[in-house]
């Protein structure tokens, strides 16, 4: 027992200090930095200030933020539209086939997403796969400008983040009791009604989890817009990266990071509330 207790303490201590050192401390440092004064000569000035947060409410920042929000949102909706039917289709197979299909879905994950973003460049470029194919079959007579556009950024985000939507959706759809669909059919519900009244409400936790797992990271994926977006299609992550690495205004970068975290927390809270809402009382209660 004593030895076991000793190992438990060691294990918890290692995990605890790892989390503390690499998650808690950096976040606290970012939080502190966000309340410091900017120093044009160095990274920051050890002086309390809320100036960085005032900058966060700058209209210029908001324009970039809203555009970034919009692109992430579109990517999320597209992921949902692709992933929902896909996951539903996946669940129709026997568990053995499902395992294989799921495996195939996850395989691309093993390649670094940065490398895959480069790959998209080659697909969408002027002499890329899409343009040369379309030219070859004669649909177009000069290459389309696909790269360095909002389209390219959203395409990249969807490509990189799609599995994050598929996995939670699959997990909740897989748990769906097929008997419930038989019962709904037996009670007279057509395909659309079964989808609307049974499948979607019961997979709502998966839908919300998937949306969060796509939307929140999408806001921060600066390398996607760096590689595919050009100057006009920045994500919030790009702004933060620029402030830290180029402009070297650390307090402003930190304030944006904190704002993004607060936004995520806010959305998680909404998710939690929505999950509670699903539990609400019924329509025909007497």
């Amino acid at each position: 027992m004593k030895v076991k207790g000793f190992f438990a303490v060691i294990a918890i201590a290692i995990v605890g200090s790892w989390l503390g050192l690499f998650i808690a401390v950096p976040n606290v440092l970012v939080l502190i930095t966000s309340f410091l004064e900017n120093d044009p000569q160095g990274f920051f000035h050890l002086q309390f200030s809320t100036a960085a947060y005032h900058q966060v409410f700058d209209p210029l920042f908001w324009r970039v933020f809203l555009h970034s929000f919009e692109m992430s949102f579109k990517a999320m909706i597209i992921c949902l539209t692709i992933a929902f039917p896909f996951s539903y289709w996946l669940c129709q197979f026997s568990s053995k086939v499902r395992g294989w299909l799921l495996f195939l879905t996850i395989v691309p994950f093993w390649t670094n997403s940065l490398v895959r973003a480069y790959a998209i460049k080659f697909i969408l470029g002027k002499k890329g796969l899409v343009n040369s194919t379309l030219l070859f079959i004669g649909v177009i007579d000069k290459p389309l400008k696909l790269l360095y556009s909002e389209f390219a950024v959203i395409f990249g985000l969807v490509y990189v983040l799609l599995p994050f939507m598929i996995l939670p959706l699959y997990a909740s759809l897989e748990k769906l009791d097929k008997n419930l669909l038989s019962a709904a059919r037996d009670l007279g519900a057509n395909g659309l009604q079964r989808m609307w009244y049974i499948v979607i409400p019961l997979s709502m936790p998966g839908i919300l989890a998937g949306c969060l797992a796509v939307f929140l990271p999408a806001m921060g994926m600066f390398y996607i817009s760096d590689l595919l977006g050009g100057a006009k299609n920045l994500l919030l992550g790009n702004l933060i990266k620029t402030e830290f690495l180029s402009t070297q205004n650390w307090p402003y970068g930190a304030a944006m990071s904190i704002s993004l975290i607060v936004l995520m927390a806010g959305m998680l809270f909404i998710y939690y509330k929505a999950a509670q809402h699903v539990q609400k009382r019924g329509e025909f209660d007497v």
Binding site: D177, S182, G188, Q193, V278, F284, V286
Partner: peptide, 25 residues
């Protein structure tokens, strides 16, 4: 209509909504 072996009641609906389902659709 069928009474299923596992009952197959809709877990996200109240008793009344379960009973109302067939009429609602």
């Amino acid at each position: 209509n069928t009474v299923f072996q596992s009952y197959a009641l809709f877990p996200h609906m109240t008793v009344a909504d379960n009973v109302a389902f067939g009429l609602k659709v």
